[in-house]
Write a protein that binds this DNA or RNA. Structure first.
Lengths: 258, 258
DNA sequence: ACCTGAACACCGTTCAAGT
DNA sequence: ACCTGAACACCGTTCAAGT
């Protein structure tokens, strides 16, 4: 069996090479933390496509290859950056989870997850690329699992329930984040971009009958509602649906074994 | 207001430059269709990261710049490739939708969508990048909207319902597709990769209590169940949940106005 | 232990030139 | 109308060398 390449930075034997983060002053003041921080800042500002090791190095006032003393590859660095933004997730402590209603808790977790994805659109394509076993990712997973366990759903069905909620939020946040990025790049507000796109594009006649919601959206935006308001509203409807769906599954399973 | 860059290949004024697809023979036998086909083939075989205009050109037995006669940019080409794989979606005709039960139809659409995303993992990051208004994408959207309209849900809530189902499938398929790609790259079966990852990684003790499902998965795989079987099962649970959720929302809205 | 510079094998795309 | 070749301004990463 071929030895697979390292699966994750988080599985690296951190004792092999020195701590990579020093208390004492380096010549350039570099360490993993400062590098990761600068990476996130650059990714937020300029996007994944424009990010490069050379660009990062110049931002840090250092030569391109200096960074490689602290990280093995660009991929490792991106994995570190990914977990770093997950630190922004608002995660309730286990006791707080147990004290609250799962419906509320689930909505809260969905909301914080969505916010982080939308705020950092570059993480969406990254999340699929890594195992997501960084410390902050684990803290979030833990909370998710604890909340869903509190629904009373059987263990086997909990995975499906978690997937339906958080893959939805992932997909929704991804589209949202990308759209915001496109608007920013085009120098347009979300509403203006939406209007321009709708003006440029005509649904083929024979399909018009089935695109009534699109028409409704156009009408709403023209009526003064913002694209963001509509997206918030749709998100809430979806969460209502998901919570109701979980309740239905729980009811269908019958009373939990004591 | 700054004139935004072209929003989509599909909005390009195709009359400006000649049809780009010729009946008669080109010196190299190139046309948009052949180029798009080769692009999909390469992306499937080697992934988005390794795809390049030069690599494509050499596959077509042509110089790198020849391709630029038929497409303006690499981005445009990727947008064409995206809609081309959507041709693989099994989309029921409007009459077929009207004749069937929306529950079944919705499951069918979710299944075909998932299959395409998993088969072509490179499309996930692309879908967010484009407006998805190609002909095949529209055909699918049309069917989705028609099916969800048949649930009896109010027009405003239909968007939330569509999002909950298809953003879920997008997220789920994305993770699945990426996982398969990682396995293929590591030269391991999905089950072996899963086992190796689980062996390499230990959940921190203080969190063990909340990671019972992960334990359950490990036990199931050791018991001979395949990772794919479990994913199929979870997918079905999620669809059950979503269908039940839609039914609950419909019931909560009360009888539809005639 | 940490950082640099030169070099290798790549990119997407422009532009002038060929047929 | 279609295709090529050279060139520009980039990449990630290796490797030998400096301090």
């Amino acid at each position: 069996m071929t030895k697979a390449a390292r699966m994750s930075v988080w599985l690296e034997d951190s004792a092999v090479r020195a701590p990579r983060t020093r208390r004492s002053e380096q010549p350039s003041g570099l360490d993993r933390d400062r590098i990761t921080e600068a990476t996130v800042k650059l990714l937020d500002a300029e996007g994944l496509a424009k990010f490069s090791m050379r660009r990062l190095a110049s931002e840090l006032g250092v030569t391109a290859m200096s960074v490689y003393w602290y990280v093995d590859t660009k991929d490792d660095l991106l994995e570190l950056a990914l977990d770093r933004v997950f630190a922004e997730l608002t995660v309730p402590a286990p006791e707080a989870v147990d004290a609250g209603d799962w419906r509320e808790q689930l909505r809260g977790l969905a909301a914080t997850y969505r916010a982080v994805i939308v705020r950092h659109p570059w993480i969406s394509p990254q999340m699929g690329n890594y195992l997501n076993i960084g410390p902050n990712s684990l803290l979030f997973s833990r909370a998710v699992q604890r909340v869903v366990a509190a629904t009373g759903l059987s263990l086997t069905r909990q995975r499906g329930a978690i997937a339906s909620v958080f893959q939805f939020v992932y997909g929704y946040g991804t589209i949202e984040g990308h759209f915001r990025r496109r608007c920013a790049e085009a120098g347009l507000s979300q509403d203006d971009y939406f209007r321009e796109a709708m003006a440029a594009f005509r649904v083929p006649e024979e399909m018009a009958e089935d695109f009534r919601q699109a028409e409704e959206m156009v009408a709403a935006v023209e009526g003064g509602q913002t694209v963001e308001e509509m997206r918030d509203a749709d998100f809430q409807v979806a969460l209502d649906l998901l919570v109701a769906g979980i309740e239905a599954l729980v009811a269908a399973e019958g009373p939990a074994p004591s």
